[in-house]
Amino acid sequence: MTTIASPTEWLAVVASRQLRDHTTVFAGVGVPLLAAALAQATHAPNLTIVVEGGIVGPRIKPGRLPISTNEMRTAYRATMLTGITDTFLLAQRGALDVGFIGGAQIDPYGNVNTTVIGDYARPKVRLPGTGGANDIASLCRQVIIVTAHERRRFVPRVAFVTSPGWLDGAGGRERAGLRFGGVSGVVTTLGVFGFDPTTRRMRVDALHPGVTMDDVRANTGFEVLSADGIDTTAPPAADELELLRALDPERRFLG
């Protein structure tokens, strides 16, 4: 087994470390779900995974990775199956600590677009839509976005706010009636990003080894704030990679 991690493996491993033991995570399929399962297998055995299809506490059957949030693969060995609306209401109640979502297009305030490019009524490109992402971003105690770091994704202003981050900055969520939650982090193929507590703009918290601020600037369509003393993320450990690869032997999501 090579211990050199691919970019997606970096993403999954670093994302998994954001999750704490004895908490709940509302995870989307793909890398977020893999990262949550990895966290469960390593440092967070008492983590409960919740999936929007009404699935609570599932395990992943190696080689049968979920493709949708609503299918038997996702429900494998779950502890509870309930309605979709009721699952989201657990988040609205405040019972889901972390929302773990992917991103299509993201701006400096952590707003995400998965709806349209261009005019809403006659779009240039009609994207699939929010799915549960808007609700996860609105209702979980905190949201972590997991995404490849590319300039076309990190834009100065999203064409459409599908999932609210900090909206237009300080006080934006409160003004809109979003009393709880907000985007706390963005894990990318370059590093880990947080948000300035005052301005709510994206800032660098840690970079993967060998990644420079120049790399970040080259791959981001807006100015990323730079904190004093940027950390360097620890590389994926051999046991983390082994567990992760066992979950996705066909490398459907790990690439």
């Binding site: 609205q92 709806t115 929010t130 609700d135 609105s138 609210p164 009636g177």
Partner: peptide, 18 residues
């Protein structure tokens, strides 16, 4: 009543009221 969709452009373009 609900706490979702608020602040997003789904409200800006849609018929939902507060």
């Amino acid at each position: 009543p609900a706490l979702t969709m608020l602040g997003s452009d789904l409200v800006a373009i849609g018929p939902m009221k507060t």
